[in-house]
Design a protein around this nucleic acid. Structure first.
Lengths: 341, 341
DNA sequence: TTGAAAGCGCTAACAC
DNA sequence: GTGTTAGCGCTTTCAA
C-alpha cells in the first residue's frame, strides 16, 4: 500500500508538499498539486487514518455502547432504529462508528472507559445501559464526551436525548379518559429505568389533571417482558375486575396484557382498552392493532449523533434534546360504555 | 493521557522494557514487571491502539458494510440479528466492529475499498449489498479479506455464509404438496438477489421431485416489498383462481399476499395456504400466524465473523458456510380438500 | 512555494 | 534482563 513517501519520491518533491497538496492547502503551486494528485491516483494511494489520527489526536470516530445486543434478539427494533439514526448522521458528517464488543464472558473484561480510550474515539453514545451501571458512572466521570439515550445526565461534555415520557403517558391517559375510562391500570417496566419513572409520573399527573384518583394498587411492573406482564396483568385483572383500561410502558408488555385479557375471557377493546408505548412494527400488525404512543427512535439516534458532534466541535450548547412523541390511535381502545360490576 | 514513556520515566527504565512488561513478555524480571504494572495503574495508562496498529499493521477491527440501514426502517430485524451475531463473536475474540458510514448523499463519496483501506480494517463483512454493485466488485478484487452474507463469492481471502435456500424452498413445497396442494404459486423477490435465484431453483426442484409441473406463469416478483407483493399477488389470484397455495420468498411479501387474498375474499388458510420465508418476529404475531422457513440469522452473523477471523488468522480453510434453516408450521397452511374451479 | 526535521505512541530488531 | 535505535505514516512548526 503506497504512502505519501512513495508519492513524494515519484513526484520529486518532499513529503510535506505531498501532505499539503493532498489536504487541499493553498500554498502549493497548482501544477505540483495536480501532479501529486495524479500520482496519488495512479499509485492507488489511501491515506492512513491511523497515522493521521495519531498525530491529529482525533479519529473522527464515535463509539457506540449498547446493551441488549444478544441472541435473545429483541422483538422490538428500537436499538436498530437508534443505530440507524446515528449511522445516518455520521454518514453526513464523515464520522465512522465503532461498535464495541463488550463480552460479558471474556475474562479481564475492559471497562467502557478503557475501550473508548484505547480506540481513541472522539466521543461515545450510550444506549440501553442502566443509569446505575458502574461502568457508565465511570465514563461519565471521565473526560470522554458522551451522549446518553434515555438516561438523564448533563455536563460540560455530557448530554442526553430522550422523548417527553411524562407527556407521552399523559397523552395516553387523556385519550383513555376521554373515552370514558375511569379505572385505569398501568403496567410499568421497572423502577430503575428513567423512562419508567417518567411514564409513571405522567400516568399520575394525567389522572390528577382530569380529577381522577390515582390508585397505586393498579400499577404493576412487567419488567419490559411480555410473559411477565401477562402474568402480572392476569393477577391484576383478577383482583380488580373494575379495570376497564390498561396503559402499558411498552408495546411488548401490552401484548402480554392482551394475552392476559384473553385468558380472562375479556375482549379487547370491548371489555378492556389497552394502550402501549413505542409503536414497534408489531404494534400495527397484531390484531387488533395496538393503540400506542409512538416514539421517533430513528430521530433519537440522529439527534444523539448530532448532539455528540455538537459537543465535539463545540457548536452545540443545549445538552438536552427532546424528541417528539405521538399518540397513534388504533383498535385496542374504545369508548367505555358499559358499567362494569 | 499517559504513555509508556511516562511510565518508563516513573519506573526508571526504558520504554522498551515497559512495552515488553505490559505485553506480558517473559524476558522481563518479575519485579520490574510488577512495578511497571503498578505504575501503569496509578497513571491510569491506556495503550494507544492507533499507535500500536500503526506499527503492527493490524487493527483487530473488522469493517461492516451494510445496506438497508435507513430511515424507512425495515420491519424485519434480519440486519440487526446478523449484526448481533457478529458482535457476539467479536466480543469473544476481541475484535471491534467499525460500521462504515456510507452516505449516499455526500459528494465525493468514497468506495467501500477506500473506506476499508483508510481505517485499515483487517477484514470486512458485507451484507445486503447486491452482487453486481460495482463497489462490491472492487472490494472483491482488492486484497481485503472479505466475507459476504448471502452473496456467493470465493477466493483466497473471500468467503461467504448463507443458508441452503434451495433446500429451504423445497421444504416449503414438500410441506404444501403433502397437504394436497397442486397449483402452487410463488412470489419471489427480484432476479438480482442470489437468494431469490436459489429459492426459485428450490421451488422448481421441489415440484419436479414430486412430479408436479412447474408453471412459470405462477411466479411473480414482489421485490421484497409488502405493497408490491400485494398487488402482484392480487393480479395473480385474479388470473389464476386455481391457485390454492403461495410460497413467498420473504415473510413481508407473505403479508402482502395475505392482504391480497383478503381482498379477493379468500380465507387463509381455508381457501389459500401461504408459506413465508425468514421467520421474522412479526410472523408469529400476525393472524393467522405465518408458516415459514426460519433462518437463523444470528448464527449467520456469528458464522460470518468466525469465517472472517478464520481467514485473517489463517485457521479456517472452508470458504463457504451453510447455516441451517427450518420449516415452522403455523396456521397459514392447511390441507387442500376442496376442488377449486 | 517548498523542504528539513521533529514528533504522535508504539513495537521490534539488535546490541550489551 | 534491559537499553538503543530505527521505524510505522502522517502533520506541522520553522527555515529557506
Amino acid at each position: 500500500m503506497s504512502t505519501i513517501k512513495d508519492i513524494a519520491k515519484a513526484a520529486g518533491v518532499s513529503i510535506t508538499t505531498v501532505s499539503r497538496a493532498l489536504n487541499g492547502y493553498s500554498d502549493v503551486s497548482i501544477k505540483t498539486k495536480q501532479r501529486i494528485h495524479d500520482i496519488a491516483k495512479e499509485l492507488e494511494y489511501s491515506p492512513n487514518a491511523l497515522a493521521r489520527s495519531l498525530v491529529m489526536k482525533k479519529t473522527k470516530t464515535i463509539g457506540l455502547l449498547v446493551s441488549g445486543l444478544n441472541r435473545s434478539g429483541s422483538k422490538d427494533h428500537i436499538v436498530m432504529d437508534v443505530l440507524t439514526g446515528i449511522h445516518e448522521y455520521c454518514g453526513e458528517y464523515e464520522y465512522d462508528i465503532v461498535l464495541f464488543s463488550t463480552s460479558t464472558s471474556r475474562q479481564g473484561e475492559k471497562t467502557y472507559t478503557q475501550l473508548c480510550r484505547e480506540r481513541r474515539v472522539d466521543g461515545v453514545i450510550v444506549q440501553g445501559i442502566k443509569k446505575d451501571d458502574p461502568y457508565l458512572i465511570e465514563i461519565l466521570n471521565s473526560d470522554i464526551p458522551c451522549v446518553l439515550v434515555d438516561v438523564p445526565a448533563e455536563g460540560e461534555k455530557v448530554g442526553f436525548v430522550t422523548t417527553d415520557n411524562v407527556e407521552g403517558a399523559m397523552k395516553a391517559i387523556d385519550h383513555l379518559v376521554s373515552l370514558g375510562h375511569d379505572k385505569i391500570a398501568m403496567v410499568n417496566g421497572h423502577d430503575q429505568a428513567f423512562v419508567s419513572q417518567e411514564r409513571l409520573k405522567g400516568f399520575k399527573l394525567g389522572l390528577e389533571n382530569l380529577e381522577k384518583t390515582f390508585h397505586p394498587r393498579l400499577v404493576v411492573n412487567g419488567d419490559y417482558d411480555e410473559a411477565i406482564s401477562e402474568e402480572k396483568a392476569f393477577q391484576l385483572l383478577q383482583h380488580h375486575p373494575e379495570i376497564t383500561a390498561v396503559f402499558c410502558a411498552s408495546d411488548l408488555m401490552a401484548f402480554g396484557v392482551m394475552r392476559a385479557a384473553r385468558r380472562h375471557g375479556l375482549r379487547v377493546p370491548e371489555d378492556l382498552s389497552i394502550v402501549g408505548y413505542d409503536d414497534i412494527a408489531l404494534a400495527s400488525y397484531v390484531s387488533p392493532p395496538l393503540t400506542t404512543i409512538a416514539q421517533d427512535t430513528f430521530e433519537m439516534g440522529y439527534a444523539a449523533a448530532r448532539l455528540l458532534v455538537g459537543i465535539l466541535e463545540e457548536t452545540e450548547v443545549e445538552r438536552i434534546c427532546m424528541v417528539d412523541n405521538e399518540l397513534k390511535i388504533r383498535e385496542t381502545t374504545i369508548k367505555q360504555a358499559k358499567i362494569k360490576k
